[in-house]
């Protein structure tokens, strides 16, 4: 699946972005299959806005976003659900876990929302790799931010996808854990021949990016 951005610019930030040069805003852009894309930008330049626009959480923007030539604006809710179950997975900056479900249940939910591709056991294997086995039975609300971040990453990895969207997924992880997480993510993307879009504040070498863009 390709993602195409046609001169998108968020309406509330229009004036602010018009004066500044950007690789993304108001540009024609195409994310090809299996591309690993890094979006670098300082705080407040619209990383999360872009992620939400691509994932169709907001539509207050000019221009068009196409998923495989389907304009996001005209996609129906049940079709959108199918895309989110099969083609696009996401790690939100604010994580968005269900606070009253356990870590395991949070991940399990996204595994069984569609026809599962992994056995339930795969969750434990991934959790072990990211050092969070011990909190799997704990309510998500009681986990630290760094733990929640890893739960959210595993949750995104247990479903099928062709694109993985990650919004500052390592902000609360130490170098060691970032290494483990990026290793797991790269492995899962390779398995699926999937591409990803990751946003961050700084340059990094966590992945072999095929494209680096400044927002």
């Amino acid at each position: 699946m390709q993602i195409e951005l046609q001169k998108i610019i968020p309406v509330p930030l229009k004036d602010k972005f018009a004066q500044r040069g950007s690789d993304v805003w108001n540009k024609e852009l195409r994310f090809l299959e299996r591309e690993w894309i890094k979006l670098k930008a300082p705080s407040g330049t619209g990383k999360t806005t872009l992620v939400h626009i691509i994932y169709k959480l907001r539509s207050d923007y000019e221009g068009n976003v196409l998923w495989d030539n389907n304009n996001l604006r005209s996609i129906a809710s049940n079709e959108l659900a199918k895309m989110r179950q099969q083609y696009i997975s996401i790690v939100f900056q604010d994580l968005r876990l269900f606070p009253n479900l356990t870590a395991k249940e949070n991940i399990e939910l996204n595994r069984v929302l569609q026809k599962p591709i992994y056995e339930s056991r795969a969750i434990e294997v991934m959790a072990a790799r990211l050092n969070i086995s011990h909190i799997l039975q704990q309510r998500a609300a009681l986990c630290s931010y760094g733990e929640q971040q890893r739960i959210a990453i595993i949750r995104a990895l247990v479903q099928p996808f062709e694109w993985l969207i990650m919004d500052e997924p390592f902000s609360h992880l130490d170098e060691e854990n970032i290494k483990r997480a990026s290793g797991l993510i790269a492995e899962e993307c390779d398995k699926r021949n999937a591409g990803f879009v990751i946003t961050d504040l700084e340059d990094d070498t966590h992945f072999h990016y095929t494209k680096q863009l400044n927002l």
């Binding site: 049940n78 659900a81 996204n110 929302l113 569609q114």
Partner: peptide, 8 residues
């Protein structure tokens, strides 16, 4: 729904 649950 954000995570991909269909309204159906």
């Amino acid at each position: 729904v954000t995570l991909g649950a269909a309204p159906k």
